[in-house]
Write a protein that binds this DNA or RNA. Sequence first.
DNA 1: CGTCTCCTTGAAAGCGTTCAATTACAGTGG
DNA 2: CCACTGTAATTGAACGCTTTCAAGGAGACG
Lengths: 231, 231
Amino acid sequence: MITLNAQPLRDDNELARSLFSYAKGEVLYRQDDRADCWFEVVSGIVRTCRLYPDGRRQLMGFFYPGDAFGVDHDFYKASGEAVTDKVLARRHLSRDALIDDAALHRALKSAEDCIFLLGHRTAAERLAAFLLAFGERTGAQVCITLPMSRCDIADYLGLTIETVSRTMSDFVRRGLVALDAPQRVRILDARQLSAVAGDLHAPDDAEIAMRPGSSSRGPSTPQRHASHQGR
Amino acid sequence: MITLNAQPLRDDNELARSLFSYAKGEVLYRQDDRADCWFEVVSGIVRTCRLYPDGRRQLMGFFYPGDAFGVDHDFYKASGEAVTDKVLARRHLSRDALIDDAALHRALKSAEDCIFLLGHRTAAERLAAFLLAFGERTGAQVCITLPMSRCDIADYLGLTIETVSRTMSDFVRRGLVALDAPQRVRILDARQLSAVAGDLHAPDDAEIAMRPGSSSRGPSTPQRHASHQGR
DNA sequence: CGTCTCCTTGAAAGCGTTCAATTACAGTGG
DNA sequence: CCACTGTAATTGAACGCTTTCAAGGAGACG
């Protein structure tokens, strides 16, 4: 399961030689290994995750076809693993191919997405934002098939699997989503789900756009780091 | 206060024309503005932060001399603001100067640092990791002068100012650090602080300084929510 | 049919947030 | 020089959410 499948798919030309296939759960590269190449998803989904000394795991991102990952500098700061079965990835030797700007930008965006999700305070906010973001990314706005396990989701959102599961059940109870199967989520009320995620401007907004530096100091900001709207 | 100081410092040559100066709290660019240029810190410290619709704030990172920031693609996903007084920044028009790879990599690393910090579960872990990381970054291993407010720290770590303050007091009580002034932190017991941060392999482990070659593969921990491959 | 893995649910405890009050300190003007 | 003011930081107490520990389903597979 932890084997590094180092054999290219085929060998008949330059392009094919850089293509690799991985089974679900297989490790493409390990955290702390020397980062001598970066990857590009061709098909399937890849996760990068970092292990903490105490054994916990933080998923840094999910990567979809076209995305670049493993673009670390000296050593990999996270490992890359196949989420789905039959992951195809193109491997670029760092010294050969200069990573193109667009790919690097997408990698940066992926990291920022993760920060964005972790920035949400409550479990409901995080999960709702995750579902919406995932739906948008994969184009499935209504019926979502989650390729990753609850454990992956939990480690991505910085929660426990129990909390993820409980929160999902709560969404079902409130009629926000339907759960046809553990991994098949149907979004019933996208608007209200956005509201839960906190991505919607409050019904009575109109004042958020004018408070740039807010916190640290400022002429007349009422201060106190905004509450948490009632639930 | 929130003005965008758009005047270059001097005008006598190409280099000087791209240099800008900002006062503490000043905004270099705003979230959701069109991202037509990216920046490079020359001196001082810059923060990027994202505002959530509900008014909360998530700091995405602190940037030090040499760092690149504001490298977003279409629109800025966060605003850039001066943390210290007299921030000098070089401004690069996106169409003119291709951002160099190294700068982009540093930006990515900064984002990953943030994820790393947010990945820590408890307030004590986050703050300890933050202090150590900040000390290492600025070269001050013992006596640290925090240029940012408690509010900045809280929004960076995804906590409240009260929790940051309480946790800091707790560190003082436990003899881990001394607080000469709210912004002057002296690290008294770096080793134990690392342990609190969870960056150490078990408190009573053999020895930490076994070289950063390839640490991963943590020793068997009484794990729950095991990932796919044994930890 | 049993076993395995993943997911769900329950109850109690821990911890961070929230609300609220207090302290420290710099700047200002009497 | 000293009250006054405003901001930042600290501290206290109660509440609520997430974690933790533990047990109970639900499919997949041999």
